[in-house]
Structure formats: C-alpha cells, structure tokens
Simulated assay, not measured.
Amino acid sequence: MPEKLILVLNGPNLNLLGKREPGIYGSATLDDIGAALTERGTALGFAVEVRQSNHEGDLVDGLHDAQARGAHAVLLNAGAYTHTSVALLDAIRAIEVPVIEVHLSNPHAREAFRHTSWVAPAAKGTIAGFGADSYLLALEAAARL
C-alpha cells in the first residue's frame, strides 16, 4: 500500500528562514524543517512533501493538488497571506483534505494586524509559537486525523 501523503505548503518569505529575523523565526532553514518533517513522517508512515512559494496562486494550486492526490492532510504556513487571503480561505473550504494552520511565532503576541487569520475559520486547527517545532507538532496532529 502506498504511503499516505502529508503536503506542507509554505508561503511568502519562508524561503529566507534561518536568515530573516532569527529572533522571531529561529535559525532553522526551511530545508532543515523539511528534513525533520520527512524523517518524522517516515516514522509515522507518511510521505511528506514540502513546498514553498512567494505567490498566493501557487498556494491555492497546492491546496487543489492535495485534493487531487488524495492527501491525508495539509500543513499550511501561509506567512503574511494568513492575514490577507480570502483566496486561501476559499481554497481550503473547496477541498475535503484537512488543513492545519502552522506558524513559527505566535501571531497574537505580535502586531495587531497579525491577530486576524483568514485561514483559521476553515482550518482543522492551528499550531503556533513553538518555532520549527510547530511543524513537527502539526505533523503529529495530522497523523492522528
């Protein structure tokens, strides 16, 4: 039986992890996070595929792709699109695959504009504020769905 897929979608500027504001986002790179997710995913019996795009439409396409491929779950760190994208909200609502919203930092401990998430109303849940471990915690939650 083929492994079940967990798709990890990362939004704008997350390609700069490890260099961009390490006091907020930590020193782990997206490749570091991807490697940890792949290792843990394998142990849990899941194939993990990590993608990043600075373009909103690519993230929408990724959500549609998760549905088409029968993914078990999506971990979505939409970055700044979290606070602006009705398109991502609609895309999540348009698919049957559960989506877990992920953030490295705690948006509620930051600027007021970050307190509103357009992703959250359609997400299965949100894990935030644990740095790179937010992704691993989200993966554990996704595996239990």
Rank of each mutant, 00 (worst) to 15 (best):
residue 3 E to W: 15
residue 4 K to L: 13
residue 4 K to Y: 14
residue 5 L to A: 00
residue 5 L to D: 01
residue 6 I to D: 06
residue 8 V to C: 00
residue 9 L to Q: 01
residue 10 N to W: 12
residue 16 L to E: 10
residue 17 L to R: 02
residue 18 G to H: 08
residue 19 K to M: 15
residue 19 K to G: 02
residue 20 R to G: 02
residue 21 E to R: 02
residue 21 E to S: 03
residue 24 I to F: 12
residue 28 A to W: 14
residue 31 D to T: 14
residue 31 D to A: 15
residue 34 G to H: 14
residue 36 A to D: 06
residue 38 T to V: 13
residue 38 T to F: 12
residue 39 E to I: 13
residue 40 R to Y: 13
residue 42 T to F: 09
residue 44 L to R: 06
residue 47 A to L: 12
residue 48 V to T: 06
residue 51 R to Q: 14
residue 54 N to I: 03
residue 54 N to S: 01
residue 56 E to D: 00
residue 57 G to C: 09
residue 59 L to H: 10
residue 60 V to A: 04
residue 61 D to S: 10
residue 62 G to C: 10
residue 62 G to R: 15
residue 63 L to A: 05
residue 63 L to N: 08
residue 65 D to I: 08
residue 65 D to R: 04
residue 68 A to K: 06
residue 69 R to C: 04
residue 69 R to N: 09
residue 70 G to N: 06
residue 75 L to Q: 07
residue 76 L to H: 10
residue 79 G to V: 10
residue 81 Y to H: 12
residue 83 H to T: 11
residue 85 S to W: 10
residue 87 A to P: 03
residue 87 A to C: 11
residue 89 L to W: 15
residue 89 L to H: 11
residue 90 D to L: 04
residue 94 A to M: 11
residue 95 I to E: 01
residue 98 P to E: 09
residue 101 E to W: 09
residue 101 E to N: 03
residue 101 E to M: 01
residue 102 V to P: 02
residue 103 H to C: 00
residue 103 H to E: 11
residue 104 L to Y: 15
residue 107 P to V: 05
residue 107 P to L: 02
residue 108 H to T: 04
residue 108 H to K: 12
residue 109 A to D: 12
residue 110 R to Y: 14
residue 114 R to A: 00
residue 115 H to N: 00
residue 115 H to K: 00
residue 116 T to F: 14
residue 119 V to D: 07
residue 119 V to K: 01
residue 119 V to F: 06
residue 119 V to R: 08
residue 121 P to G: 05
residue 122 A to I: 15
residue 127 I to Q: 00
residue 134 S to L: 08
residue 135 Y to N: 00
residue 135 Y to Q: 06
residue 137 L to Q: 08
residue 137 L to Y: 14
residue 138 A to G: 08
residue 139 L to E: 09
residue 140 E to G: 00
residue 144 R to S: 04
